[in-house]
């Protein structure tokens, strides 16, 4: 303290005004700055010394792999999905793990066997279409012939004196039933079918497909020229293209 009084006296002798100002430290340091400062300084000094020695001894082939090392570091440092959503929208980041959807218990346990069964079922049910429309025409003709025969038979029976009420009602019957009355023999029926257009047959079948049974279709189909299932998978248009092709073939045959 004696030294301090001496210094103060000295200052008073030089500048009494300056000596009168209270000594206050106006500078601040970050909190905890001095904690561990010695270690930080020691590490920095150590690293600098280490760098100096390492600089002169570059490991062999160091620069050959440097670019790869840097690139892999960049890749691993790429933002993870979690970091990304947190930076875009913290709210969405916190909602992420909430799953609102229920699932039946044990759903996944037998899923693979259910799928395999479905595959086996679909393999046995595949019904393919012939490359020409002949099967379709035959099936259509059979169906139309059946209908015409039934109505012809009904009208024949109206000639029976016991069924006079049917004769009386025949004039009120739909036109197609009245038309059917002109086909009385097999020959006439076949001739009638021959006059039907493809469009008429198709329209009829679209409205009355239940008349055709699966067996008729299977017996009249040829699978050889069909596109393979793989074609359907690779290209969604494969089946459409195929159907258009056979349709065009059918039209050409009819016009020849």
């Amino acid at each position: 303290m004696e030294k301090s009084t001496e210094i103060l006296n000295e200052l008073m002798a030089i500048s009494p005004a300056l000596a009168a100002i209270e000594r206050v430290n106006v500078f601040t340091v970050p909190e905890g700055y001095f904690i561990g400062l010695d270690e930080k300084i020691a590490t920095t000094v150590f690293l600098q010394q280490d760098k100096k020695t390492a600089f002169q001894k570059v490991p062999e082939g160091y620069f050959d792999s440097l670019s790869d090392k840097i690139l892999s570091k960049i890749k691993t440092r790429e933002e993870s999905p979690t970091e990304e959503i947190r930076s875009i929208s913290p709210a969405l980041h916190y909602l992420k793990d909430e799953n609102v959807f229920d699932i039946p218990e044990g759903y996944f346990d037998d899923l693979s066997s259910r799928i395999l069964n479905k595959i086996k079922e679909s393999n046995t049910k595949v019904v393919s279409i012939n490359s020409s429309r002949n099967w379709w025409k035959y099936a259509a003709a059979a169906a139309v012939a059946g209908i015409i025969t039934i109505f012809s038979f009904q009208l024949f029976t109206t000639k029976n004196p016991n069924n006079n009420h049917l004769i009386a009602n025949s004039s009120r019957m739909p036109e197609y039933i009245q038309l059917a009355s002109q086909y009385k023999t097999d020959k006439e029926i076949n001739q009638g079918i021959a006059t039907l257009s493809d469009e008429e047959i198709t329209n009829y079948l679209e409205k009355n497909t239940t008349i055709l049974d699966d067996e008729t279709l299977i017996n009249n189909t040829d699978t050889k020229e069909l596109p393979t299932p793989d074609d359907y998978l690779i290209d969604d248009n494969a089946l459409n293209n195929y159907l258009q092709k056979i349709n065009a073939e059918g039209v050409n045959k009819n016009t020849q």
């Binding site: 799928i115 479905k118 679909s122 793989d230």
Partner: peptide, 15 residues
């Protein structure tokens, strides 16, 4: 959808 997609996978997996 899951079942149908696996049926397609079955058909397309060989290729």
């Amino acid at each position: 959808v899951l079942q149908n997609m696996f049926i397609k996978v079955w058909k397309g997996l060989e290729n």
